[in-house]
């Protein structure tokens, strides 16, 4: 099963493994007078798992929102797959190969698991209104072609039994898994995960960690994740960037970050 996916153009983004895939340069973002992010720079290399950590309100989610075009930063540039950009629409970011999951599950609650994951392939489905009206023929062929890919993902995430269940009825842990599936369906070269383990019990966390590692290793997908569970972060990630009050305070391997005095202060709360 994994072989079929590896043969697909998932990892074919023209960047060599280990080279810089995403480079965030001097990004600042504010809402009115409130500065959410000030002057942050870091990079994500192809094939790695990069963690973004920091206390609540440090600007982590805002950072992801900037990367996938949901917020437009006031200053700074973003370089993705060798191309520089400042602003873009979120659906264009998906077109370039950035997919994400959300802190609070953002699934389409009225739709089944299958439809939710199929929705992740919207960008790739091209048959227009005319063919859709006829259905039989090209539209159906396209549907089936994408269904096969989606079934691979459903297999991979072990959610076959809930294929036709409306996601609104699923327990939280499974919803998170479906959301990961939807992001995978976009065949991203960069996958952004916003607190993938939040609100999970130990067992669910272990499952999710395994899926994240498998995605990274089997598909070669580069992953940037936000997570509060330090155990998970230190085990999973190759490099960690630490934010606090919208500023970058540390960047390095898990071990380096663990011993950084600024990081310890930020988490234990030294007065600023």
């Amino acid at each position: 099963m994994a072989d079929t996916i590896q043969s697909s153009p998932w990892t074919d983004d023209g960047i060599d493994p280990g080279a810089v895939l995403l480079n965030v340069d001097n990004i600042s973002l504010s809402f009115g007078g409130v500065k959410a992010i000030s002057d942050i720079s870091f990079d994500v290399c192809k094939g790695e798992i990069r963690a973004i950590i920091g206390p609540n309100g440090a600007g982590k989610t805002s950072m992801l929102n900037v990367i996938n075009g949901f917020y437009q930063p006031q200053e700074g540039t973003i370089m993705f797959r060798g191309k520089e950009r400042r602003s873009m629409k979120p659906h264009q970011a998906v077109g370039q190969g950035i997919a994400r999951t959300f802190q609070n599950v953002a699934l389409f609650k009225g739709m089944s698991t299958l439809d939710n994951i199929m929705a992740g392939r919207s960008v790739m489905m091209k048959r227009n209104l005319f063919w859709q009206l006829l259905w039989h023929g090209p539209a159906l062929n396209e549907e089936i072609e994408h269904r096969e890919k989606v079934e691979e993902i459903i297999d991979f995430l072990e959610i076959k039994h809930i294929r036709r269940t409306p996601v609104g009825n699923l327990p939280y842990g499974l919803q998170k898994r479906v959301e990961l599936g939807r992001a995978l369906a976009m065949e991203p070269s960069l996958l952004l995960l916003d607190e993938p383990m939040a609100g999970m019990n130990l067992e669910e966390k272990e499952d999710m960690s395994r899926f994240v590692l498998d995605v990274n290793q089997q598909f070669g997908t580069t992953i940037a994740l936000i997570e509060h569970d330090m155990g998970v972060v230190m085990d999973l990630s190759d490099r960690v960037v630490v934010l606090d009050y919208g500023k970058k305070i540390a960047d390095g391997t898990p071990d380096e970050v663990r011993n950084n005095q600024d990081v310890i202060d930020a988490y234990l709360g030294v007065p600023h």
Binding site: N68, F70, K89, P90, H91, A93, V94, G95, A99, R100, F102, A106, L107, F108, K109, G110, M111, A119, G120, S122, V123, R182, A183, M186
Partner: peptide, 10 residues
């Protein structure tokens, strides 16, 4: 179901 999420899946 969720227009923001729809936008973010492309």
């Amino acid at each position: 179901d969720m227009d923001i999420a729809a936008e973010l899946v492309g």
